[in-house]
Nucleic acid binder design. Structure first.
Lengths: 111, 111
DNA sequence: TCTCATTGCTACATTTACTGTAGCAATACG
DNA sequence: CGTATTGCTACAGTAAATGTAGCAATGAGA
């Protein structure tokens, strides 16, 4: 079940082009992926706690996404539960501008 | 078919919490959404050109995503085709660190 | 005006992805 | 032993995405 070479695994759309950004956009563009990274931002969570944080999402898909994120090297399973790796935290850093953008977006939306 | 109040439209997962980032993560976490924004980064594309750029994705889903992105205020349809709005370009700006991250990610993956 | 090509967009049957519920084996605590 | 976690999986049902085809509207050319 443990795959290798995550960055270019065949099932990833856009990875045929060899452009890493495509593989990343594809991975992040799957349901719950962005959310999981977001919810783990402040520390590790157990699978159940993560599920609660993710609005009781189906454990099936959470497990699938966690496996993908682990294969990609963004998430790891420790004694404290699932947590972001160093790489995963770097990925989360790129969300910061996104967060600020979201705030601006929601405000200009009312008009 | 035309909805209103995009930031808090009922179908958006995570928006019940009222946190804009959740609505944004949900929108961006749908298939082809990230990719579309990415492909429009250098200028407007016609629907067919966008489809080609998106690896011949189904026009059905592209049209759905384009509608969502237009309702969100990120994309607009002009004489040149679909293009990013000012807001959409701001959103794309947040991808820049993601792009650089993707490059680093693909390199450390081989080990 | 009659093609012909392009645009944005949609129908629809098939396939894939996701959901919701239930429950497993392993571990730990009493 | 019971019971309460953990990570994880099975499976039936539902929702989402794909792939192919084609529509109406627009414009260019003969």
């Amino acid at each position: 079940m443990a795959k290798q070479a995550p960055a270019t695994k065949p099932g990833v759309r856009g990875s045929r082009s060899g452009r890493p950004i495509m593989a990343l956009l594809d991975l992040l563009g799957r349901r719950w992926t962005l959310r999981i990274v977001w919810e783990l931002r402040e520390g590790a969570l157990t699978s159940r706690a993560l599920r609660t944080a993710c609005d009781e999402a189906s454990p099936t898909i959470l497990q699938t996404r966690l496996t993908e994120l682990r294969e990609a090297g963004f998430v790891e399973l420790t004694d404290d539960g699932y947590g972001l790796t160093v790489l995963g935290r770097e990925l989360f850093q790129t969300f910061t501008p996104l967060h600020r953008f979201a705030e601006r977006w929601s405000k200009q939306e009312g008009s």
